[in-house]
Amino acid sequence: MSPPPASGMSVLKRMLWEENPVFVQILGICSALAVTNLVKNTMVMGVGLIFTTALSSFTVSALRSYTPRRVRMMVQILVIAAYVIMVKIFLDAFMPDISKQLGAYVGLIITNCIVMGRAEGFAASNTPGKSFIDGLGAGIGYTMVLLIIACVREPLGLGTFFGFRIEAIEEWTRWNVMVIAPGGFFMLAIFIWVARYVNEEIDRRARAGNNCDHHEPKKK
């Protein structure tokens, strides 16, 4: 992993794209696949995850000088679990329907590698403020990818968006495969493909721009 950059803004930007947890580090894709057949559920899940990563990174970082190294992982898991319980209780109280649909996947935020990864990889050795932003960035980067995938899966699979019918594609034959498990795998693979292609293209443009000014970089 690259050395942590100085300012808060660059920490945020790095987590959003350059080290995006989903398509660069391939972390936490269990729930990325499970909830993305409905945009609404994805949104709720994403907000829950942003809340958990940001605050647990903050807490882990604030406690880092009081935590003995040997029980470090255990403390991190307990901090994360505490925040996930808050998310769960909040959902049960205010959005019982969605809470029911998400079911066990809310609890699985605890073992989502992103949350653990940020706590262990960044928060354990940085100040609380910076860790908070780092966790926030990781959460937002993750949610962004999930939303993009959900925005393809729901319309193609169910012909709805955010739960509303789309008039324009009323005649559309539903792709059932998009709603069930394989659709999730395929969409994520395609997303990784496109994202990597774009990244490489940006790199090549930047390099071509430095070397010889007027030539468009050749495509493969």
């Binding site: 391939i26 069930i180 394989p182 795998f185 693979a189 990784i192 493909w193 990597r196 490489e200």
Partner: peptide, 21 residues
Amino acid sequence: PQLEGPGIALIIAGIMALAFI
């Protein structure tokens, strides 16, 4: 090249999931 590693693994997993369906 862009699909190497996790990308192609996900596609294989998708096909396996189809088989299990």
